[in-house]
Amino acid sequence: MNEFVEAFLNLEIAAAALPILWMGLQQTLLLSALTVPLGITAGFALALLSTRRERWVRWPLMAWIDTFRAIPPLVLLILVYAGLPFAGLEIGPWGSVAIAFLLNTGAYYAEVLRAGIESVPRGQAEAGRALGLKPWQVWVFVVLPQAVRNVLPDLIGNTLEVVKLTSLASVVALPELLFQARQAQSVTYNATPILVAALGYFLLLWPFVRLLSRLENRQLAGRR
């Protein structure tokens, strides 16, 4: 037991590692502030395109979305980070993470938003047009607000996953929370910094998990 406390709950090491973990947490937040809007923007663009009826738009779009939902995000990230330099493009950890997340989370957001848009009855858009709104006004003021509201739990859930995914950036040496924790662990040869980092993730994300589980249960119950 003593050995366990020494290796996992070493307060001395926790205190020493805290400043660098704090820096890591800031990078994690910054990274989330970059990747979430990027993914949502890409998702919106793809979802809007997917409402087109033309086959030459629909099929390539489906293929694109399914491809990037099928490849694990870490594979995509490493492909971009380690592969692109061979093509003469040095884009560094931040650029790699941005590209990989744009492709991966964009596809996920697109699926969620598409389901939302499809859940809005056609009559809504038609009524909007009949009232004299321009097509873009129909989208912005009639369809999208209802679409987003209908899939709000999925949107929040997806965003939570994106924030959790930022931990992958540690693999390409971007100094976010997990990376800093592993650095501290390898220097001190003690697992306490990783445990502290895990605690940090938990405290950061727990409120969202609680909120989400309430919204989700309401949604499942509403399916009857």
Partner: peptide, 17 residues
């Protein structure tokens, strides 16, 4: 709430200690 990679690292690098 925990990212899966954090759980893996915690179990793999933590438990041997």
């Amino acid at each position: 709430a925990l990212p899966p990679l954090v759980v893996i690292v915690l179990i793999y690098f933590g438990l041997p200690a």
